[in-house]
Simulated scan of single mutants.
Amino acid sequence: MTDLPIPRRRNAGWRTRAFAYALVAPVVLLILGLVAYPFLFAIWVSFTDMVVGSVGQFIGFRNFEYLAGTATFWSAIWNTITIVLVSDILKLGIGLGLALLVHQHLPGRGLFRSFLMLPWAMPAFVAFLTWRVLYQPIGGGFNLILTQTGIHTEVIDFLGQRSTAMASVIAASVWRGFPFWFVSILAALQSVPRELHEAAIVDGASTWQRFWNVTLPGIMPVIIVTTLLSSIWTANGFEHVWLLTAGGPSDATMVFPVLAYFGMQTQRIGEAAAVSVYMLPVLGILVIFATSLMMRRDE
């Protein structure tokens, strides 16, 4: 059987590549239209003095210099870092503990799993408005419990004073977000080979040694990815701060998304875009760090 002529084989290869490009082209165009263009346009706007109704002129780094000179901007940096770090640590502890508990053969654990997913299934708007009602100084659930039981006789304005506002926002954020950690870690626990635990038991390893040397290394990739996603979502989160405190009192809970929203409210589009662009290096470093950890583990 003779081989096909070279020109015919080249035409067949070109047609295959053209067909493959034609299949990928709609997805590429969709990504460029919905992701790349808005992303690049927001960066451009951050270097202009654009306001509502005006195209704006290029002003270089003036928006960034102005923001860096305000106390609210530095409060937003500190508060965003605080909320992300503290929330992720608490979510990791709660999610890991509950996942280890439910992973055991306990009666009714299926119902318990479903119950633990309720905070995540509830719409964020409803969840944080409910927490706001619980925090109310007059008639709020927490103050009623504290005063009626005699634990604290005076009414506490959880969201209205600097000493308690940040902790109150973090508590609500942790309650809303820990189910994601729980279900992710639980899925990772179920993928750890049982033979490794059995071998560790035969070798005389204690419960803590089995967790540290078998369970934790097996679920670490999932913990890294979950930490990355949760950190990005928390840093970009808007509802948990806006619905509870709107960034107050006195910028005690001001974060980047709320600061950008205030810029939009005052119709200074350029400044609002500059706030968002300020977040890009931090999130980029976080993504690179998590990716490098995953690559090291793969190697």
Rank of each mutant, 00 (worst) to 15 (best):
N63V: 12
M279C: 13
W175R: 14
I6S: 06
G139V: 09
F211Y: 02
D203E: 14
I201F: 00
N63G: 08
F128E: 05
L85M: 08
F289N: 05
G60H: 06
K91L: 08
S276V: 15
A165M: 06
L67V: 03
G140V: 13
V282E: 01
G141Y: 01
Y278Q: 07
S168K: 11
Y37E: 09
F47T: 13
R109E: 03
V102I: 15
G95H: 09
G248R: 11
R176P: 00
M279E: 04
G150S: 13
V275W: 00
G110K: 10
L129T: 11
V287H: 02
V52T: 14
T234Q: 10
F19V: 11
L116V: 14
T227C: 13
N63W: 06
L229N: 10
F39Y: 11
P257T: 14
T130H: 00
R194C: 01
F180A: 14
W78T: 15
W212H: 10
G150H: 07
M117S: 06
R15H: 04
T2C: 01
A121N: 00
P137R: 10
S54M: 11
G177V: 12
M294N: 10
M279F: 04
F125K: 06
F112V: 15
A187V: 13
R296L: 09
W208K: 03
F19L: 14
S173H: 09
L243H: 01
P38D: 07
M50V: 02
G150D: 04
P107N: 08
P107C: 08
A68N: 06
I151T: 14
G248P: 04
